[in-house]
Design a protein around this nucleic acid. Sequence first.
RNA 1: GCCCGAGUGGCGGAAUUGGUAGACGCCCGGGACUUAAAAUCCCGUGGGAGCAAUCCCGUGCCGGUUCGAGUCCGGCCUCGGGCACCA
Length: 801
Amino acid sequence: MNYDFKTIEKKWQDKWVSEGTFFAENDSKKPKYYVLIEFPYPSGMGLHVGHPRSYTALDIVARKRRLEGYNVLYPIGWDAFGLPTENFAIKNKIHPKKVTHDNIARFRKQLQSLGLSFDWSREVDTTDPEYYKWTQWIFLKMFEKGLAYKKEMSVNFCTSCKVVLANEEVVNGVCERCHSEVIRAQKSQWMLKITEYAQRLLDDLDDVDYIERVKIQQRNWIGRSTGAEVKFATSAGDNLVVYTTRPDTLFGATYMVISPEHPLIDKWSDRLTNMDAIRAYQKEASKKSDFERSEVAKDKTGVKLEGVTAINPVNGREIPIFVSDYVLMSYGTGAIMAVPAHDERDYDFAKAFDLPIIEVVAGGDVTKEAYVDIANGVMINSGFLDGLKVQDAIKTIIEWLHEKGLGEPKVNFKLRDWVFSRQRYWGEPIPIVKCEKCGYVAIPESELPLRLPEVESYEPTDTGESPLALMTDWVNTTCPHCGGPAKRETDTMPQWAGSSWYFLRYMDPHNHDALASPEALKYWNSVDWYNGGMEHTTLHLLYSRFWHKFLYDIGVVPTKEPYKKRTSHGMILGEGGEKMSKSRGNVVNPDEIIDEYGADTMRLYEMFIGDFEKAAPWSSESIRGCKRFLDRVFGLYDMITDGDGYSPKLEAAMHKTIKKVTNDIEILKFNTAIAALMSLLNEIYAKKSITRGELKTFLILLNPFAPHITEELWSMAGFEGMIAGQSWPGYDEQKTVDESIEIAVQVNGKLRGTIKIAVDSSQEDALKLAYENEAVKAAVDGKKIVKEIYVKNKIVNIVAK
RNA sequence: GCCCGAGUGGCGGAAUUGGUAGACGCCCGGGACUUAAAAUCCCGUGGGAGCAAUCCCGUGCCGGUUCGAGUCCGGCCUCGGGCACCA
């Protein structure tokens, strides 16, 4: 009989849908388990072979949990607002709503053909007004609590298109489409105060089970540092306040640097005699992004302020002030004290501008490079700090600054507030109006959802406003507070908004009265296992944790953290090891793979391709091995013999394989779990028979990986029900342990032979056998035995001279 | 530049706390079956020397710790992810 995957896969996919096999229940007696993958952005390119890697992995987890007796929620939805859809709509003159609808239809069909056990009755779509009603509602709550505010921020502005550009649309400093110059323009933007949650976002990482590199990345992104804010008097009268993590090096501060956007520049414009040069420098700096500005490799640039100097508070010395773009207004106070002897960037700048370098921490050679070691350094040239270790000097100087009223200890975060405005059409409208009398006023909750109006053109206006600004009928409204004339906010929300809480909506997706009912939120609690790409580690993951904590604070959700466990998968690359992209022409279409080999082979290959956590190149040759394996699995039908138990020949292998597959799935070792199943199949083929009991276990173990073929064989063999209704097999630890093992014998660390000994043999027995080995005899012949090492069940090593 | 990862046969990869490097699969070679081919099945397969038993070399590079290092430490090199308006 042939393995006709097309017929088999269609048959079981239809059956799962018609029987509602994978529906999650909100009031089950079983323990719950919530499995989550990052919902896709339905791009016009269709599904990428990278998507199923994560989806199949957690589908395996979901299916295994069901077999282990859990009520499993494994949902799917669409993160459908965003720039690419809008740009496609503009280019092809099709409404983004239509583009989104078509893309979703295609993605849905493609995902269904993979046999993923999603609960399709809970599908969500961030662009559905019934969904974004609650995205807007959360924003209103944040506004109400003072977490949303307006601030002047710099944006990329194309001088030719006259539109605000996303960072991605700026390529090498010019507009991606028209190649014109892009400048940094100032624009008033809605901001969310994620910084208010910085400490909690950091602290609560200790309570969640995220893979370590995700935690490290989040901690570094939040970037907590301790130091001091120090006041420097200036000749202009104003104090210049700096933030420093190294107040111990204050005696070595030989100049100061302020960022080009620093407000004191304008204030001092009358006193500054070289204002033209400063203005020109500000203009140049405004063209660069923060990223370009912080590149150390570049030559340091800057302009000295002529007419205003500062006083170093510890020694009263007059020092110059520079403006330079390596100091960012968005971090600290936008001003630094420069200690060239002990900071690399300051060192480079001092060399470029021929400024004095005073060593205040001994231990390095500051004539050659900055000495930045804080563990071993000892203070010198620093008055009352001399002789102290760096850490003690920091404490001493902070106390001294505090007593003199010159400075205070200060905790700083790298994390910045979230820029929440987009001057774009295809996003959630921000539900705020601006009233001349009352200022920014929230629209009443009863008016939610504030629907995205139909517009003629989705292109941003040439003033840099969102296309919504042209909809005067929609923009002009009345103030909900005073009833006077008011204008609606025309900016929309970023794509991140809808994805910051979608996992909550899955819990109760059709609720009209709340984002989800309190009962559903309580029952499903938090996500048990969330898998996604490393590229979402800092932004999406942090944003959604922030929103969740806010919802916890206002009593909507019962947990402080949204995700109990977070894992990450590597990318699937093109055949040549490069990233798959249209321009490289190396994109693999999953539809073609499924058509040629079937969904089960596709799933199996995606899991067998390599280490789940690492990137792996696609191989159109290797996938054949997975197809061959399934062909052989299908061939088991012709080898079935009677017997509900395991045959003596296969018993140990069965128990070992159950143990291996059971454990490997939990630690993301899908590739080695499959390898174990392949080895077991090889043993069955060598024996040319399989008992009904062995077949049952084999099919259940393979089912999460290849659900269609295993259900088919289950049914062909005449077993009752579906595998989906069975239990995960157990194993007997005793039966996984061999009675005797082969261990290595080394002489001077070099392998000379192996011996077969009973498990847990004594050193005496092991050495006796080892010396009987011919190669070992030869290797120690005529030498003096210096040392004999025996590690139980591992190795014998004889050191001979 | 900053933060985080990763480098193992011709290829994808495997290898409890440091303990027989190369499981499993691909490719390739040989054989069986076939008029023939495909498919399938069996065997071989890190590199080098040797008729052979066997020996030497080998986990990006340089150095260190250890009876023993793919694994630990120090210093590099290369590649990938992120850098706040792509998602």
